[in-house]
Design a protein around this nucleic acid. Structure first.
Length: 501
RNA sequence: GGGCCGUUAGCUCAGUCGGUAGAGCAGUUGGCUUUUAACCAAUUGGUCGUGCGUUCGAAUCGCACACGGCCCA
């Protein structure tokens, strides 16, 4: 143990690399405020490059621009230091003989990873690299830990997720993914605002969770002594707003589902949901195609997207086929084999799809679809005509009462979006809720609750409306060519590390 | 939940048949001061994920557990 200048006991670092850096920090502390609050930058690496990279050596020599910038030291190369400033690198040239003795000594306190403020004149080296000739510098924030490998960066996926800041310091690819994510989200907001949609925020903590068949997280409100649920979807709130007269609304925010973790699932994830009165599900398929096409173009000035080696041209019309057609196309099954529940069960058995005897025809059909077909739908495809039993909030088809006016968008075997013409018949909705409650009572933890107020809202009158949800994380995965949802979440959920104490 | 793979220095990775633990980078010391994964010389650094077992002897073989990855449900 040793004491710092506040008299606080410090555990001696078991790691010598850290201990050495702490000693350097201590030397700085003895001289001055080690973590100064103010450093008045006169420029940034980005600005200097924009302003001076086109100038030649003699022009720069004439200008003799003196500047002050700051950044993190990421390379030391003989007399050169490279600092990174907002993701842009710029080189410093250090000649001890040009510095005062005090400053020259302070050079010894510098380590890779330190954040420094520097002053110097802008020039170009023999190799034509824009550089700052160091005349003064100050450590603004001492880095106590060594940085990961300077060539290969941080590779260990576990560390990249647990210590995202480190990943972001050293892995440019990772920084680019999150910039892209931000750009996509901004694009989507602008897109919907341009179409006169209004962005709204509805509760994330709900007394009755609804809007999706999924298991919710439960929490407790102490003052009200009441269990509450983190929302699994904002759907029922958003449709209440359409009842209220906000005819075009969207919400782009977090949902929570109490399910397993995987490369495609995180307990909290970001969803876009939007509702448009006087539209139907065909209108939303058109809108979705247009949106994806424009995002692709905004990101890369092309409608072609490469994901994990496969190329998707979002500029081409997306295929639109029914659940039944999709099954017939990818399994040894004909439309006639799906006519009755007996035939459907026989089909499932012949395909080796497990089901329980009390399941409805629609539920077994969807099980066949999810297990045998979904992953084979590679090119962008809208799958339509979902069975009514698995679509408790979707409008019943006017000709065929056993299916709904619903679609899902599949790209690369992954579900990206789910939309439908909304069920606005309050009596039909009440029946569907009752069916869900019956399922819940027989043990299905994902089945929906009965939301009486929502039925009341429908009784006041929901105009004909269509609505859709788009999984933003999966969308970003597609555009960023990321194999795991964790690659597009800044802080993905991880199991806690066991502490030995 | 099941199967397979991984876990070795701060980082990236080797480690053969079970026989006292290796490299590159980073670090330290010195040199070099217009370099570009800078270079040259010397040098420090290990709970081999954790625990138990087999063995004269375990990073290596076995079992259990933890964390991660991939696949399946």
């Amino acid at each position: 143990m040793k004491e710092n200048n506040n008299g606080v006991q410090l555990v001696e670092d078991e790691n010598k690399l850290v201990a050495l850096r702490r000693e350097k920090l201590q030397i700085i502390r003895e001289k001055r405020q080690a973590y100064p609050n103010t450093f008045n930058r006169e420029s940034t690496a980005q600005l200097l490059i924009v302003k001076y990279s086109e100038k030649n050596r003699s022009q720069l020599e004439e200008l003799a621009v003196e500047t002050m910038i700051a950044g993190r030291i990421i390379r030391m190369r003989g007399p050169f230091l490279v600092i990174t400033d907002g993701g842009v690198n710029i080189q410093l040239y250090v000649n001890k003989k040009e510095l005062s003795e005090a400053l020259a000594n302070e050079l010894k306190l510098l380590d890779l990873g330190d954040i420094v403020g520097v002053r110097g004149v802008v020039f170009k080296t023999n190799k034509e690299e824009l550089t700052i000739r160091l005349s003064d510098f100050q450590v603004l924030s001492k880095s106590l830990h060594p940085l990961p490998d300077k060539h290969k960066g941080l590779i260990d996926t576990e560390l990249r997720y647990r210590q995202r800041y480190l990943d972001l310091i050293v892995n440019e690819d990772s920084r680019l993914i999150f910039r892209k994510r931000s750009k996509i989200i901004r694009f989507i907001r602008n897109y919907f605002e341009d179409l006169d949609f209004m962005e709204v925020e509805t509760p994330m903590m709900q007394v009755i969770p609804g809007g999706a068949t999924a298991r919710p997280f439960v929490t407790h409100h102490n003052a009200l002594d009441q269990d509450m649920y983190l929302r699994v979807a904002p759907e029922l709130c958003l449709k209440r707003l359409v009842v209220g007269g906000f005819e075009k609304v969207f919400e782009l925010n977090r949902n929570f589902r109490n399910e397993g973790l995987s490369a495609r699932h995180n307990p909290e994830f970001t969803m876009l949901e939007f509702y448009q009165a006087y539209a139907n599900y065909h209108d939303l398929m058109d809108l979705t195609e247009d949106l994806l096409r424009k995002i692709a173009y905004a990101l890369g000035e092309t409608t072609r997207v490469t994901y994990q080696g496969s190329v998707y041209d979002l500029g081409k019309p997306f295929a639109r086929i029914s659940v039944h057609e999709a099954i017939c196309r990818h399994c040894e099954i004909s439309e006639a084999d799906l006519k009755t529940i007996t035939l459907v069960k026989a089909a499932a058995e012949s395909l080796g799809v497990q089901f329980e005897d009390e399941w409805s025809s629609g539920k077994i059909i969807m099980e066949i679809f999810e297990q045998k077909v979904e992953s084979k739908l590679d090119q962008p495809t809208f799958v339509t005509e979902y069975p009514i039993e698995v679509s408790p909030l979707a409008r019943r088809n006017e000709e065929r009462p056993e299916i709904t006016d619903r679609f899902e968008l599949i790209i690369g075997g992954r579900e990206l979006a789910n939309g439908f013409s909304e069920l606005n018949d309050p009596e039909d909705q009440a029946e569907r809720f009752h069916a869900q409650v019956a399922q819940k009572n027989s043990g299905d933890q994902e089945a929906m609750h009965f939301d009486a107020d929502y039925v009341t809202a429908l009784e006041y009158g929901l105009p004909p409306t269509a609505g859709e949800g788009i999984g933003i994380d999966r969308l970003v995965m597609l555009f960023a060519d990321a194999p795991s949802i964790r690659d597009v979440l800044l802080f993905p959920h991880m199991r806690p590390l066991k502490n030995s104490d």
